[in-house]
Design a protein around this nucleic acid. Structure first.
Lengths: 336, 336
DNA sequence: TTGAAAGCGTTACCAA
DNA sequence: TTGGTAACGCTTTCAA
C-alpha cells in the first residue's frame, strides 16, 4: 500500500532535486534558477502535490487562518457582514475560522483556540474582548481588529460605520420633513454602535434647534430584534412622536409591524428611519428609509488593517469610519 | 528575550517529567499515574500552556477542524442552518472552517484547501461536489456529509429534511381547506431539494384524486429569493390557483408581496404554503403557513454521521430524513 | 544556485 | 508507569 499523501519529498525525488528546492519553488522565497523552478513545478503538478498547511504553519509560526468572532448570525445584518468578511478573507488567500459566541463568556476560550491555531489575525464583530486576552494576542503578534465595537483597546484597530454621520442624516431628514417631536428607539442592553447612534441623534437635533429635553422621547424595547421592536410599538402609550430614529433595521421592522397592528402607518402617522439597510428593509411590506452600511467596504478595510498590523505590530491603534448613506424609502420619503 | 510561547517541553521541565508524559497527561491517552498527571496539569496551568494545534494536527494527521461549505449566507434559512452547524461543531469540540462559494467552480479549490488543513470532516450545504474530488477526500479518510443535497455519492452521508412528508402535509392542508386548483411555485434552476418538494406535491395531489395535468399550474420565477417570488407574482397572468405551494420561504414572501401589490391577499384570494419557517415568515406582515425545518436536528445528525464515518470510513452511504412540521399561520389557516 | 541539516511542537512506539 | 526517540511535512539558515 503506497503512501496516502504526496509530500515535498516525493516532488523533490521526481524533479531530481532536494526538498529545500521544492520549498523555494513553491514559495518563491529564496533564490532558484528559472529552469529548475519550472522543473519542480511540473513535477508537483504531475504528482498533484498540495502543501500541508499544518506543517507549513507550524514551521512559519503562522497559519493562513483568520479567526472571525460573530454572534446571532440569524440577524440579517450580521449575516451579511459575515458574508462580506468571508468573501474578503478568501479573496486575499486566507481561510476563515468562524466562531459564534452566545455571550461574553465565550470570548476567552474562543480567542484562546484561535491562538492555538496560530491564526494570522482575529476579527471581532461581537462582544468586547477582555484586555488581558487581547494582550495575549498582541504578545503573540496576532493582529486584532474590531468591527463596530467601542474603539478603546490599545494596539487594536477598529473599523466602524460612521454612526455620527448616519444619525445626523437621519435627524436632518426627519427635521426637514417637518417633524418636531422625535423618538429614539433602541433596545435595553444595546450594542455600543446603537448607543452611539442615539447620542449622535440627540446632538444633531440639538444643533437643529430642537429642545432635546422636551421633544425627544426614548422608546426602549425590552429585547432586541424584530420582536423587541414589535413589542415596543404595542406597549407605547404616550403620544406617537412624528419622527422616529431607530438603532437598527430589525427593531425598526418590528416597530413598523407593531404599529401597523394598532392601525398606525408610516409615513402617514409617523416617520421612521432605521439603520443597516438589510434586504428585508427594502421589501414591499416595509420599504424602510434607512442608513446603508457598506459591508464590503467594512470588510475590505478590516482585512487591510489586519495585514498591515501584521507587518507592523506596534503601530498606534487606528480607527476608520466608513461612510453610511441614507436610502430614501417610504417610511420617510425623500423631501422635495 | 524569553521565548514567546510555552511548549510541552517547558511544562515537562517544570513538572520534572518528560515531554511524553506531558502529552499523556493532557490527551488522557496512554497510561499515567494519577499523581504525576496532577503534577503535570498543575504545571501546565501555572505556565498557561496551550497545545499547539498545528503541531498536534501534523502529528495526528488530522486537525480539529471541520470544513463547512455554504453559499448566499444572506438568505435567512441558510444563515440559520449555518448557525446551527456552528453551534453543533463547537459543542463537540471542533472548530469550523467556513467557506462561502459563489458557484460550482469554487468547490474544487475549497475542498482542496480543506484537505490541506487536514480537516476532520467536510459539510456541504451548497453545490454538488464532483465525484473525483469527493474520492480524494474519501481516500484521505475525510468524511463528507451533504445537507439537503441529492444523495447519490458513494461513501458520502446525507441529512435531508423530509421533503416528501412536507409536500404531503402541504397538499393535504390545501386540499382539505377546499382548494381544487393548485399552483407550484419554484424558481428556474432550483436546488435539488426544491425540485423534490415539487415532485412530491404533484404526487400527493394525485393521490388525493386531483387531476395533476389540468389542475396544477407551475409558477416559475426567473430568479431565486424574494425578488424572484415578487416578480413571479407580478408577472402571473392566468387565473390565480386557489392553493399554492412554494419551494421556500423567501420565494413565498416575495410572492405574497407581489400579489399584495396587485390587490390579492392570502388567505382571502389564495392559500399559500412555504417551506423553511424562517424568522421572517412568522412576522406580522407575512404570517406565512410553512413547513418548519429543524436546523438543530439537522446539524446534530450531520455531526453524528461525520464522526461515525470517521471511525468507519467504508460503511455504506446513509441517508437520514429529518421530520418537518407544518406551522399553521394566516396564509393557510388551520382547518376546523 | 543548490543541498544538508536543524528545527517547528506534538504524538506514538518501544524499551526500560 | 515512564523516558527516549523517531516520525509528521515543511522552511530556513548555512555551507558548498
Amino acid at each position: 500500500m503506497r503512501k496516502q499523501t504526496v509530500t515535498a519529498e516525493d516532488v523533490a525525488k521526481r524533479a531530481g532535486v532536494s526538498r529545500a528546492v521544492v520549498s523555494r519553488a513553491l514559495s518563491s522565497n529564496g533564490s532558484i534558477s528559472p529552469s529548475t523552478k519550472e522543473k519542480v513545478l511540473r513535477a508537483a503538478q504531475e504528482l498533484g502535490y498540495q502543501v500541508n498547511f499544518l506543517a507549513q504553519g507550524l514551521n512559519r509560526q503562522r497559519s493562513h487562518l483568520i479567526g472571525v468572532i460573530v454572534a446571532r448570525i440569524g440577524d440579517p445584518f450580521r449575516s451579511s457582514l459575515l458574508e462580506g468578511l468571508l468573501h474578503e478573507i478568501q479573496r486575499r488567500g486566507y481561510q476563515a475560522l468562524v466562531t459564534e459566541i452566545t455571550g461574553e463568556q465565550d470570548l476567552t476560550p474562543t480567542l484562546r483556540r484561535f491562538t492555538q491555531f496560530r491564526v494570522s489575525g482575529v476579527i471581532v464583530t461581537s462582544g468586547k474582548p477582555p484586555e488581558t486576552l487581547v494582550n495575549e494576542c498582541v504578545s503573540q503578534q496576532i493582529p486584532v481588529v474590531g468591527i463596530n465595537r467601542q474603539p478603546d483597546i490599545p494596539l487594536v484597530d477598529f473599523v466602524c460605520s460612521d454612526n455620527d454621520s448616519g444619525a445626523y442624516q437621519a435627524a436632518e431628514q426627519l427635521f426637514h420633513s417637518g417633524c418636531r417631536r422625535f423618538g429614539w428607539l433602541n433596545n435595553r442592553g444595546s450594542t455600543w454602535a446603537g448607543m452611539m447612534r442615539g447620542e449622535a441623534f440627540y446632538q444633531a437635533l440639538h444643533q437643529l434647534g430642537v429642545d432635546t429635553q422636551r421633544h425627544i422621547s426614548d422608546i426602549t424595547a425590552s429585547e432586541e430584534g424584530y420582536e423587541g421592536g414589535f413589542q415596543a410599538a404595542r406597549a407605547w402609550t404616550g403620544e406617537l412622536p412624528a419622527g422616529i430614529f431607530c438603532a437598527n433595521a430589525q427593531l425598526a421592522c418590528g416597530f413598523l409591524d407593531g404599529m401597523r397592528q394598532r392601525g398606525k402607518f408610516a409615513p402617514q402617522d409617523f416617520h421612521l428611519i432605521g439603520f443597516d439597510n438589510t434586504p428585508q428593509s427594502g421589501q414591499f411590506s416595509y420599504q424602510l428609509t434607512t442608513l446603508h452600511q457598506d459591508v464590503s467596504e467594512i470588510a475590505r478595510r478590516a482585512l487591510t488593517r489586519l495585514l498591515e498590523r501584521a507587518k507592523n505590530p506596534l503601530q498606534p491603534s487606528r480607527i476608520e469610519w466608513v461612510k453610511v448613506e441614507l436610502i430614501h424609502r417610504q417610511t420617510s420619503p425623500r423631501i422635495g
